[in-house]
Amino acid sequence: MIRENSEVILSIQDLSAEVDGNPILKGLTLEIKAGEVHAIMGPNGSGKSTLSKILAGHPAYTVTSGSVTFHGKNLLEMEAEERAKSGIFLAFQYPLEIPGVSNLDFLRVAYNAKRKHEGLEELDAFDFDELVQAKLELLKMNPSFLSRSVNEGFSGGEKKRNEILQMALLEPKLAILDEIDSGLDIDALKVVSSGVNALTTPDNAVLLITHYQRLLNYIEPDYVHVMEAGRILTTGSKELAHELEARGYDWVRDEEVEAIAR
């Protein structure tokens, strides 16, 4: 929801970054305010996933110039763990499998790390169990999920639901959902989308990264950005996504070239 006087949650200015010496982001600028849902679309290799990992603080990427401010603080100076506890959540495109660590333990430790960060008392196993059961219902997840090892042997759809379950528990200020729709059948897509919609409030924001317009039928964006070669080519409303679906990314590229030529 776009509101004029909302607080700016995330401000990215002219950001460039590389991995193993290869430049991936080349001067990207983006601002996200509270209550807004942004979608970034773009062809493979345009740098969408890289952007999400840089925002979350993945150590493999090096920022070469530009700035990122999160709630007025310099995000780039914060460790990944700090960013998470301050309210940045990344739903992974490929959630990692952690054999031997139960999902319930993982969720509880993550949840309590955040409580501790906020100066709140940690929840004991019983209170946490109550809390997590309620969140499971939201995502129509079977409680047996909790006793299994984190993502181990989960289907693609189960992994994605597990990501949203974590989001539901951690209540982030900014949720970055990296291809949350990939590998989902239509029923799972509906469950995941309604879960995300139920979690959006006027105080937080969502950044969707996707290839396909389909997801945006379920989670309606306020802005659609088209990314290519490490920067944002153009920004529009959700209609832009429909146009992309119909005409492909080349169309945006050509428009852009024309615009520069004029």
Binding site: A56, E81, L90, P99, G100, V101, F106, A110
Partner: peptide, 28 residues
């Protein structure tokens, strides 16, 4: 690996806890 540790950290879990959870899980 680095990616597994990053997954923990992205959920606000410290490296120390991440390593110890994975090791105890492995040795359970």
């Amino acid at each position: 690996g680095e990616d597994q540790l990053f997954y923990f950290q992205q959920r606000g879990i410290s490296l120390e806890d991440a390593v110890s959870m994975m090791i105890s899980g492995f040795c359970k």
